[in-house]
Structures are given as C-alpha cells and as structure tokens.
Design a binder for these strands. Structure first.
Length: 479
RNA sequence: GCCUCAGUAGCUCAGCCGGUUAGAGCACUUGACUGUUAAUCAAGGGGUCCUAGGUUCGAAUCCUAGCUGGGGCGCCA
C-alpha cells in the first residue's frame, strides 16, 4: 500500500492533480465519459451482494450523491473478498462508466478491479439507516460520513466562502481580530481565562492573585467579540469585517448556545443605522442565494428530511423586504396581540424568546427591531436624540429568533465617555478606543452575525451542536 | 442556574401495576438468490437491563442518591 502511495498511484498529483477523477467530476461529465476507464477512491456507504455480482454505493466526499459500483465474479479476481466488504471500508475502484437511463441513477461504474485500501471492522457504528442526532453527536469523528452531516458541513464550507465573497466583492478589508484579549470591558458574557500561571500554586500578593506574574503581565481572556478592534480598522479602511472564533463561558444549556462559535462582524465608517441594516439585509439575502445555488442536492435533501418547507422559507426571505420597526412599536404589537405571554411585554425591557417568535410570525418575514432602551444595551451604542434610546438593531427571523445584533456606534467623545461612566466601564482600559473619537472620528456602524446560527437557519438543523464539526459546550470537550 | 423526560443487544425501541430462561427490527456471521437501490429470504452469535445503595422469598420493573443525555426556560450570538 505504502509503496503504491509513493509511486503516486493514488492521486497522480504530479501528472494531473487538477484532473483527479472524483464522484463530483463524474456527475458533471458522465455523458462524455461513457465506456471510458476511470479510477475512483472512496468509502463504502452501502453494499448489496449476490451470488455472482454485487452493488457498492461509493462516496468520496466530493459530492452528496454516491456512485453505484457494479462488480461481477467474471471480472474480479478477488470477487469473494470484495463480496464481504463492509460499510465504511475505503476502496480503490477501477472501472468503466456506463450510462443507465432506465435505472434510478443516471450512470454507474462497471468494476474491472477493486482494491480494499482500508477494511472496516464489524462494529462500525454508522449503518445505512436513520440514526438519532444524539447518538451521532457521540460519534462526531464518524458522523461526517452520513448524508445529513455531509450536507451540513459542505454547506458550512460554502457559507464561509459566501461570506468572504460578499464582503470582498464590496472591497471590505478582512481583519484577524485578536483571540486573546485583556479587555473584558464589553461585558458581553462570561469569559474563559487564559493563563500560564500554575493553578496549583498561584503567586499572590496580599490575598489576590498577582497577575503581573502571568504571561501577559495582566489578566487575559479568550475574546467574546472582535468589534472594538474592527472599529479601529474601520477608521483606517472604512469598510472592514472580522470572521473568526468567539468564546463564551456561560453555562448555557440550549440548542442555540455553544462555548466556541464563529462570528462575522462587519464595521462600516461614514455610515448610520440605516446603512447598517441595508448591509445586513443585502448580506443575508446574498449568502442564502449563494448556498441555494451551490448546494442544490444538499438543500433538496434538507428540505425533504430535516425541515419541510425550508426552500420556500429561504426563497421568501430572499424576495421579501425586511420589516423595520422600533422597539416601542414592537411592544405595541405584542401588547395588542391576543396572546397570553409568560413575560409581559414592556417598553423598558428586552424581548423574550416568545416575543421574538410572535413578531417573526406577525410579519412572516425577517424584521429589524431598532431604537432600544439604552440601559439594556451596550455602552458603545449611539445615544438617540431622545436621550432614552440607542441606535441599535436586532434582526429577528422566523424560527431562529435573533441572528444579528448591531448598532450605530457612539462617535462623540464626550457622550461616549459619559456612557462608559454610567455603565461602569473602565475608561482607562479603553483609552485606545476613546482615542478613535479624538482623531478623525466618523459616524460608523456595524453588526455581529452568529455564523453557526445562520447555518442552522439555512439548513433547518435545530441544534447548534449539529452544525459545528466538533462542538464545545459546558461539560463537553470530546474529540 | 431552574423545570421536565429518558437511560434495556452495535443502533432504534418493546417489556416496567415485581415472578424464575429479557424480546423485536436493523447491523454482524454463515448460507440462498442473474440487477439490487435502507434489496429480499433462512439460520446463528451477541446483554454490567446507566451506577451505587435500599425494600422484598424474588428487582430491568418499586424507593433513594448520583452520573449521562434530550427538551423547555434564563443568560446570550
């Protein structure tokens, strides 16, 4: 085997890496490949053997569909060995392409030789039948070989590309905002501490831990947001975005929370809240369109087996004009609704999950809620003229609730400083952030999109742990 | 953190108002089958009934505690 590999028999990269035959390429070109001899590598998804011939459904990861490989005793020296191939085994298949217009699949491979590259043992847990998501979560290293997870993770990859494409097409600069940060000023949730101190024997002065002895000479954490750094870049490049991992140490136990997730945070200078919402709306529509165009098979599968009406839902989002209402108007709608909410809607308070669901249903389309009471929002959001609300916006979508939160940022030095004092944010620690308002400040705005939640929305998958390859949640750091 | 449901074969589950030898389908093994499509048919192997205590002549079944997982709420993206 290794000798084969050294000779380049597996891939033939040296000669023609771009012409590597894959299941995807075959599906694209099979009409012109009839009777041609090809070589495929892949894994057995299903296998049905009979006395003198058999059928193997081969998947090589490049395409959602499998290819049916037909093998016959007459053509294989190792027929008896191949007949016993189990699901999960990896194979090298040489064969001839044959069009099969009268069968469920458009073409198949008549095998001329099959070599077992790696056998799969009897207790391979993934079977050709429906498995529970819970079971597959516990086999996260194998679940990506199932239909559902091939679909989800290919779409995840496409969605990443769609987001970069959207921003790069508009000349946004991508910045890698820091993952380790000493600032916890944003107050966006519990943080994971990063330290090289010996926790069994921490240096102390008086009673407190002496962080001057720690790696950075101060207390450090994993980031909860790259926004503040993005703002700094926006004041140089005008339009920028971050796209990276984010960490929250909350002990949340829900289908929409993970300890490690990815966020997209665009930040635009010389822009107000309306521009911000325009950007968000355009982005949501475009990235959905990209996925629907580039993952047709996967989306059709999800539409059929995961969320009935998924395609209609997404079409509706792409065609609709997102509603825009103020927080006050939202509360009015809720108060007038003939629904007994567990939480009484209040002009003074945040929307509960049940409120978001009602609003999404009320409009039957995504809806921006703007102008929130200042005391329930972050210090950096721009104070409106009424002095009571801030120029914030949340985008609420049917079925998934809030997927975007954004705001116009407070660009006025004095107002920002006052808000920091009111909200007990240490202005010394964020001196650099205040500096941005001293040297050529601009009206600017931005938002944060929870990438994994967006993926849930697009795939219809209801649990965030099923859209993250190896999810991290409280008490769960397997794999 | 709070409320709730569950844990029986590799998987999905039945059995659970206590009763002696714990079942089914799929998977696996062996065989049959000349075109299968989650193929079909026959036979076979496979169990810490989550763990620890308790009640009882007897516990998968009842009680207590714990562990693990699901769902809902809260915190948030």
């Amino acid at each position: 085997m290794f000798a084969l590999k050294r000779k380049g028999v597996f891939y033939g990269y040296r000669e023609a890496s771009l012409m590597k035959m894959t299941v995807k390429r075959l599906y694209e070109t099979y009409e012109t490949q009839t009777d041609k001899k090809i070589t495929l590598f892949g894994w057995v998804r299903n296998h049905r053997s009979q006395k003198a011939f058999g059928f193997i459904n081969l998947n090589d990861g490049t395409f959602f569909e499998t290819i049916q490989v037909v093998y016959e005793a007459d053509h294989l020296e190792n027929f008896e060995e191949i007949r016993k191939t189990r699901i999960g085994a990896s194979l090298r298949v040489e064969g001839v392409v044959e069009a099969t217009p009268n069968r469920p699949q458009p073409f198949e491979i008549k095998a001329r030789s099959i070599e077992i590259v790696g056998d799969s043992e009897e207790d391979y847990p993934i079977q050709p039948k429906r498995h529970s998501r819970e079971f597959l979560r516990e086999h996260a290293h194998l679940r990506s070989r199932t239909n559902l997870f091939t679909a989800v993770f290919r779409i995840r990859s496409l969605l990443t590309h769609a987001i970069h494409t959207f921003f790069q097409d508009r000349d946004f600069i991508h910045l890698a905002s820091p993952i380790i940060t000493a600032s916890d000023a944003e107050g966006a949730g519990e943080m994971f501490q990063v330290t090289t101190l010996d926790l069994e024997n921490t240096p102390k002065s008086e009673k407190a831990v002496d962080y001057s002895k720690d790696f950075f000479g101060r207390k450090a954490n994993l980031t909860v947001s790259g926004q503040l750094q993005a703002e700094a870049f926006a004041q140089a490049f005008r339009d920028v975005y971050t796209f990276g991992p984010t960490f929250r140490a909350e002990k949340s136990h829900t289908a929409t929370h993970a300890s490690e997730f990815w966020m997209i945070e665009p930040e635009i200078a010389f822009a107000d809240l309306e521009d911000d919402m325009d950007l968000a709306e355009e982005m949501v529509k475009e990235i959905i369109g990209y996925v629907m165009k580039h993952a047709e098979k996967e989306m059709a599968f999800l539409n059929k087996f995961v969320e009935k009406g998924l395609l209609d839902k997404l079409q509706n989002v792409m065609q609709s004009k997102f509603a825009r209402i103020t927080h006050r108007e939202a509360i009015d709608i809720l108060k007038q609704a003939k629904v007994a909410f567990e939480n009484e809607p209040s002009y003074d308070r945040d929307l509960a999950t049940e409120h978001e669901k009602h609003l999404a249903k009320h409009f039957d389309a995504p809806v921006f809620v703007t102008d929130w009471p200042k005391h329930i929002k972050a210090f950096y959001m721009r104070l409106n003229d009424d002095k009571e609300t801030v120029a914030a916006m949340d985008l609420i979508v049917p079925k998934s609730g809030e997927i975007i939160g954004g705001s116009q940022r407070e660009e006025r030095y004095d107002v920002l400083l006052k808000r920091m004092e009111e909200m007990n944010v240490d202005s010394e620690e964020l001196k650099w952030y205040l500096d941005l308002r001293k040297y050529g400040t601009t009206p600017h705005a931005g938002f944060g999109l929870g990438f994994d939640r967006m993926l849930m929305y697009i795939t219809g998958v209801a649990n965030i742990r099923d859209v993250i390859p190896f999810p991290r949640t409280p008490k769960n750091c397997e794999f």
